[in-house]
Each structure stands twice: as structure tokens, then as C-alpha cells.
Amino acid sequence: MSFLQKLASAISDNQSCLCVGLDPNLDLLPTDVQELDKSDVQKVERFLKTVIEVTQDHCAAYKPNLGFFEALGSQGWELFFRILDEIPSDKIIIADAKRGDISSTAEHYSKAFFEQTEVDAITLNPLMGFETLEPFLADKDKGIYTLALTSNPGAADLLLQKLSSGQTISSYIAQQLSYKQENSEGAIGMVVGATQAEDLRPVITEFSEAPLLIPGVGKQGGSITALADALDDHLGLPLINSSRSIIYAGNDTSHWEQAVSESAEQLTHQLRPITKKYV
């Protein structure tokens, strides 16, 4: 099954375009998990396994953020592999790695994630040039999500700067990704922030069939209504990511598992106007 087929199936079967971000911050773990007489890695494992168990009925995808696993050292990498095994097979798994390098380094990043793990896609940074994407595009069963218009304020420093043509760098990236997709087996998607809804349409118009990974809903304050308006004419399938507002929803309660589940269910319901466009 190609990446795009699996993506379509995951959204349709789960009636959801929600992606749950797995960002295990030791300082934010629920109190009863922090108080366990276990190592930090064991606490994170217990936490993430529970998060996956209680959210899997409400989402189409999971996005483990590699920085949080790498911060745990070599055992964090081992934990990453164990967590991948916990994610149901009907979900899309996106490695949030934001790698971006040239030549054999990119080739080895591709081997590391696409040959040594069971992830379906990876996030990439294109700012060293579009050649850095090529090693990830040989397999139709895999996808990439390329940073195009990120959700953080720093997007204004580079991505929203204008070129002499009048295009923003974000729009130029989207245009070039569209051209590259024409000759690539792997699926090329884009990371675009829900917090940038007012600047989003010119970017996604340049690559209207791109699958989108959309952070910024939840703690970052992105508007679902504004996002739905921006996506009105977009053809590519969206995954709308939420991390902290879901996985740490129950930190102030003794029944944090229920709060996490309810937060995922509630966001899935709020995203229904977007989801129904694609299922």
C-alpha cells in the first residue's frame, strides 16, 4: 500500500484527521507517573503507552518527536522503537526529526528511519536545498513532510520573507516541492502551521495536492475555523497535529488517562468540518 493510500485509509477508517504528537517531557508528566519508583525511561514508557491506548480510537496518526527521545540518551532510542511497536498498524506514524543534510549524510538519515524503523513518514528541513530530500523519495510506501510555513513566530524571520519575485520563501518552497513531486515515487507533503492561517492559502495554492501536517492547534492557539477556511480548496489530505493540549490534558487530575482520552475525542469532534471534506 502506498503512503497516500494508507493515509487516506487511516483518515477514512478513523473518521478523523487528528494526529497526536508524542512529546514526552519529563517535567510535564502526570504526578502519579512522576512519583513511580522507576527510571525516567520507564516513566516515559508507562506514560506514552497509556496515551496511545486511550487516544487510538480518536486519531489517524501519531507523531513521536525525536528530540524528547534523544534527550533520554541511548535508552531513549530503544524506547522510541518500543513505542513504535505500541502504535496500531492502521495509524500513520510520522517521525518528527526535521533532518536536512546533503549527500551521503541524507542517504544515511533515510536508511536510519526508512529501513531501520517502521515509520511511514518523516519531517524534513529543506533549507540546505531540495537535493537533501531526494534520498527519502525512492519508495512510494513512504512520505516526507517538508517544512514550508512553520507554526512558531520565527517563521517570520525566514519563511515569510519575500523574494524579488514577490513570492514568500514559503510559497517558493511549496512551488518547488510541487515540481519535485512530478518525478518522485515517494509522497511529498508540507508542514504548515495553523497559527499562520492568514498566510497559508498562498502557500498551499502552489502545491494543492500536497498532504499537509498542520501543527499549531491547541496550546499554540491556532483557530480551527480560520484553518478550515484556508483549506477550503485544498485537495491534499491534512493531518492536524496536537501534542501538549492532548497528552498533558489531565495533569491536574487524578484520572489523567480519562482527561487525555476526552481531550482527543473533543478535538476530533471540533475538527469534523475539516475531516468530512476528505472522507
Rank of each mutant, 00 (worst) to 15 (best):
M1W: 12
A8F: 06
A10Q: 04
I11L: 14
S12W: 06
N14V: 02
S16N: 08
C17T: 09
L18P: 11
L18Y: 03
G21H: 09
D23N: 00
P24A: 06
N25P: 10
N25F: 05
L28K: 15
L28W: 12
L28M: 14
L29C: 02
L29R: 05
D32S: 05
D32P: 11
D32H: 08
D37Y: 07
D37S: 10
V44I: 14
F47L: 11
L48V: 04
K49A: 10
T50K: 15
V51Y: 01
I52R: 04
E53S: 11
T55I: 04
C59E: 03
A61E: 00
Y62A: 01
K63W: 09
N65K: 11
L66P: 07
E70V: 07
L72F: 09
S74M: 13
S74G: 02
W77L: 15
F81H: 14
D85L: 06
I87D: 02
I87N: 01
P88G: 12
I92Y: 05
I94Q: 03
I94A: 05
S103Y: 14
S104P: 03
E107W: 08
S110N: 11
S110Y: 00
F113W: 15
F114R: 07
E115D: 14
E118Q: 11
V119W: 00
T123P: 01
L124S: 08
P126Y: 10
G129S: 12
G129C: 13
P135K: 09
F136R: 01
L137H: 06
L137N: 06
L137K: 06
T146R: 12
L147A: 04
L147F: 03
A148K: 02
T150Q: 11
T150P: 03
S151L: 09
P153Y: 09
L158D: 13
L159Q: 12
L160E: 15
K162Q: 14
S165R: 00
S165A: 00
Q167I: 03
T168E: 07
S170W: 03
S170L: 02
S171E: 15
Y172W: 15
Y172R: 15
I173E: 03
S178D: 14
K180W: 12
I188H: 01
I188G: 07
G189R: 09
V191H: 03
G193R: 00
G193D: 06
D199I: 01
D199A: 11
V203A: 09
E206A: 15
F207E: 06
F207V: 00
S208L: 13
E209W: 02
I214P: 08
I214Q: 01
Q220W: 06
S223A: 00
S223H: 00
T225P: 01
D229T: 15
D229L: 13
L231F: 12
D232I: 14
D232H: 14
D233F: 13
H234L: 01
G236H: 04
P238F: 06
P238H: 10
P238Q: 08
N241G: 12
S243C: 07
I247L: 09
W256V: 09
W256Q: 06
E257R: 07
E262T: 10
S263T: 08
S263W: 04
E265I: 07
Q266L: 10
H269E: 15
Q270V: 09
Q270F: 02
I274F: 02
I274P: 05
T275Y: 11
T275E: 04
K276Q: 14
K277P: 12
Y278G: 04
V279Q: 04
V279M: 10
